[in-house]
Design a protein around this nucleic acid. Sequence first.
DNA 1: GCGAGGGC
DNA 2: GCCCTCGC
Length: 884
Amino acid sequence: MSQDTLIVVDGNSLVYRAFHAIPLLTTTRGLITNAAYGFTNMLYKILQDEQPELVAVVFDKGRVTFRTEQYSSYKANRKAMPDELRPQFPIIKDILQAMNIKVFELDGYEGDDLIGTIVAKAEKNGLNTLVVTGDRDALQLVSPRTKVLMTRKGITNLDIYDEGKVWERFGIYPNQFIDFRALTGDSSDNIPGVPGIGEKTAAKLLQKYHSLDEIFNHLDELPKRQREKLQQHREQALLSKKLVTIEQNVPIEVDLTQCTYRSPDYHRLLELFTELEFKSLVKLIIGSDGSKNGKNKKAAHEQPAVDTFKVGYQKITKPEHLDTLLEEVKNTEGISLVLNGTAETGVSAAAIATGKQVYQLPVEGKPDEYLQVLKEICEDDQAIIYCHDGKSAIWMLHHHGIKLNNLGFDTMVASYLLNPASPSLELEDIALQNLGVVLPSKGEAALPARAEVIKKLVPVLRDKLKQQQEERLFYEVELPLVKVLAQMEITGLAVDKQGLEEMSAELGRRIDELTVEIHALAGEKFNINSPRQLGKILFEKLELPVIKKTKTGYSTDASVLEQLAEKHEIVDKILQHRQLTKLKSTYADGLAALINKNTGCIHTTLHQTVTATGRLSSAEPNLQNIPIRLELGRRIRKVFVPRDKNNVILTADYSQIELRILAHMAGDPGFIEAFNQGQDIHTRTASEVFGVPIDKVTAEMRSKAKAVNFGIVYGISEYGLARDIKVSRAEARRYIDNYFARCPGVKNYIDRVIREAKDKGYVTTLLNRRRYLPDLFSPNRMVRSFGERAAINTPIQGSAADIIKLAMIRINKELEERKLQARMVLQVHDELIFDTPASEMPELVEIVKDCMENAMSLDVPLVVDIKTGPNWYEVKPIEEQHHA
DNA sequence: GCGAGGGC
DNA sequence: GCCCTCGC
């Protein structure tokens, strides 16, 4: 007889258990996955422990079953399936399919009955069966060959019931279980049983009389109270018996050979698990702990279930092979290119995948031979080239004087667009998530594998972009922008190094003076830069009042110090010290350290795949936060100079772009009108909020109104506004209410955006850039409010990003076509900075103004202010220069 | 990792 | 609301 083991899983029972045992988990896209995660983990563990030869999972189908027809109250007190659970069933079925596990379901029957039928068949075939469920009724199936694995509490505690265990637990044999339930009932399924007869009594009766029928035959032997109860509820007991009896002959084809447990489709499973963000399960399959450095060893028993992705490739050993490569590239629409190397040292190795073949370069023994071929390929306008992080490829090629003319796809940028709030940016992760393959991390095969994977990813990612309606955004904005950003980084900003050093020295002297004074006032030396030491001095030694606390101690931030300023003269000096050390360390010294020795310029990195809203970010150094508000800091801008003595700096910034976008998207007539008439928008808001005529708006009112306008754009909270303009919460609330009362279009817009965001799970910008907002569904109110503010802010901030990106692409195209020497060198969210020969100024002004103001057509004008000067500090409006 | 502070 | 960098 066969010793094979069959596992039959009650899908619904385990899914419900998992749902209630695990708190709501969501993916970064807001998909709820807790039940799917818990179920999959349970299943994995059971399969691991039992190593079965056969596996089946059953599900209920349809709410009406033959039991409901017999007894309308059956399971009537069961609540409807929670909205968070329902959509997890298709996910679970996808997972089971990927695991190659047979699923049974049949309309009108509960999972129990399918289990019963399968068990009957298994018994006939002499299989050992293990039923996995949380439903006690299944215990009636226990036999010498059939056991039940029952969930106890949570999902990790499982009890195994064989005949002995049933006896031990209930004092009955499994074949008495139906009668037992007929007597005790089951409140969760609304099975009545015999009221007043509990488990203890039922077991005693069954021990003595063996069955329900025999109990009724011997009623006269029973004590009066029991007898009466049984007589009175006889019909009910018999009905209960029918209801709890598991059907073992359901009209369904059960072919146990179909249940043979084969190995899963690991690639599909990896795609699913990575998409669902089941990180521990991914680790289980790929046998890695996810650490990039590979320092942490795998546990010995953890055999990776999938091999790393391998692809056959041709190493180019002879120069003649290069001709073959060139020929094939010519005949291929879209090749992928992977480069090893750095921007500083150039390309050290390359791989090219055409779809038919993967080529590995360089030519053995001839380290530079291939560069000419690389040049021919990259600069061929006909060759469409796919990269992962095309901008870094452009940098590396730039080292060899090679251009990348036709970037046809960028898997990193595409993956960012699909989920900018938490994108997978590493090719390894993108491959896992979209192809279900594991990339080799090192070794000779790594490069060709990457090339092949990029080539395979392009259609998959393109399809996903299309599904999210972001194909145009990708091809018309983000992809062409890669080249523009590369050019900006490569050009860099010229810096007056000597000027920077002088500023650093001067700041150093003033910091030293202040340090001496502060130490004297404190009566001891201490590290002013250490919030811990500073806190001790201020709040313990000098006993100043504690205004705010942080997680780790006293808060000493600027708002706290400002409130303490009048209590002790040391405080103002600390504020000054803070300001000066920030300027010296971050700006004077920080910038000086990043001047490129060869070019004398600062080459920031403009990140295209970092922000959740679609903005760019700047790093090493961050040139998007060079001081401007305070005069002292603003002087830093003097060191940013043109790269040639005949050049000037030109800046062009959008005036109030975010508020204009808000006016446009909200369609608020008053707001739109104000911009169309060229009114001062903050003055107008002040007039609305304070209910005074435009000409009666004071400077203070305007400044408060300005804060309100910012607040609206940021997704206002009265708390934030009150803090910013230093008024009470109630006062702030009044301003906001007034604002909404006077600008109903804005109010409606905000409500609409939040509603749509909650409905769809994401928000979009004017060019359909998408951001998922899982925070909107958080059970935590604070997190939820945060999500709501992001829902308001993202369409505005992101649309501004869309617009300036469009302008940048058009400007660069014009500069190129007109062969101008002017260069765009920086973007600061609503501002572009150029380094241009003075002679090209008039033409540049015309191009920049035109491209920026007409980047997109809105219901309000886009207005750009242009300034020029000998450095970034001294830029002045061009009109003024005419008059001067 | 946190607090602080610079920008839009 | 969105970032980056510094010093501890």
